[in-house]
Nucleic acid binder design. Sequence first.
DNA 1: CTGCTTATACTCGTCTACGAGTACTTCACA
DNA 2: TGTGAAGTACTCGTAGACGAGTATAAGCAG
Lengths: 234, 234
Amino acid sequence: MAKRRKVGNLLALTLLVQLHERPMYPYEMASVLRERGKDQAIKINWGSLYTVVQNLEKNGFIEAIEVVREGRQPERTTYRITEAGRAEVKDWLRELLGEPAREYSRFEAGLGDAGSLPPDEVAALLRQRLDLLDKENEENGATLATLVESEQVPRLFLIENEYYLAMRKAEAEWVRGLLAEFENGTFPGLGFWQTLHDAGGLDGSGNVPELPEGTQIPPALLDALEKRGEAERK
Amino acid sequence: MAKRRKVGNLLALTLLVQLHERPMYPYEMASVLRERGKDQAIKINWGSLYTVVQNLEKNGFIEAIEVVREGRQPERTTYRITEAGRAEVKDWLRELLGEPAREYSRFEAGLGDAGSLPPDEVAALLRQRLDLLDKENEENGATLATLVESEQVPRLFLIENEYYLAMRKAEAEWVRGLLAEFENGTFPGLGFWQTLHDAGGLDGSGNVPELPEGTQIPPALLDALEKRGEAERK
DNA sequence: CTGCTTATACTCGTCTACGAGTACTTCACA
DNA sequence: TGTGAAGTACTCGTAGACGAGTATAAGCAG
């Protein structure tokens, strides 16, 4: 599970899928991707594109079938997918769909260090985030609804958008909940957190006041955390 | 917003935050991180660690204060955070918490190309994913609940875990919903999708049958998709 | 028909991520 | 007291990511 791919960039998967349809040259693959709106779910990096295509060829997943030069433009090499390429797509999709993988988000990292800002500022930032999320979700939801209702785009072509929207909505709800706890003061430890910043603990002195007695992270917790870590690392 | 950081790796943020507490040498920073369970939210890469520390120093966010050699072990350089480092932490946290950023997940990419597998296999894979998600969520939920109930770990130190759990639960629910549509046949276009694969369209022939008349992606949709793309690119 | 913008189709170079390797130390245990 | 496993603390090499740059062509406005 989650074995190392010869070509790891997810752009490669989508390119291979493109090539099922017909042979193309690199720039063409990227254009078609963009036309179909797939660049919503996959980041197209023009720099990566050619590296990825090259690696796909090196590993026998695609092969060049034609090199054309039109006028004085640079050469265009057209590629087609190989049997090995088809097999790779299936195997890869089975992994991506069937096995949940740990992924690290920027917001999660930020939350982990949120204690470095005073609580009222964190609350303000979360408020801002929530407003932006709500706005974005409403827009995306409306667009998606229009497309689905038009019944001209098979829903199969839209599920990745549906998924993304669902996740962003869930994030908004979570933030809304946390924010409520902040604003009505039910989030435990708000006082201590504030004190820590009032004392200038993180500003300049370089010292963080000790946590109050009894609030230290107990060894039992460390064990639990470590066990969880080990389990994930397997 | 979302400006380019001098040191972009998120590991750098957590290291800087660590150094608020006291000066440390690189290996020590990573160990402390692990002890505190922060390696749940941030991937610690031993290879990246030293590159990141070096870059932090190069950009003036940390400075070396001592080089010690104990016995015949390699030298240990101890670093402390600078004023610029403190400022960077604050600025970075404001960005991470306040501004939602588009992130690309492996599952989303997989969904986008799910059409390359026959529908019954996709259903089976989603079933498998859902089972794994449910199991994982139950375990993580139990661990978290224990920690929160113990009241010895400030909740502030756990919010990133709460967030992660909430997201995984939301994913599970979304998958459950989609799966239901598959299994009771209410997902539109299942028949066509199956036919496409029965015809061997994606297996060997290299040709994909044309979409039925009227199901083509209409230009209006393309416009909409493109507009959405543009808006995101801004 | 001239100049401007936009699209096409890459190439190049740098910077970074990251795994794998290294070499020494400490501790258990037989 | 020898051996092996686990921990400590890095170093190194290389593949890959990615931005910025380049050069041509097509469209069109005046």
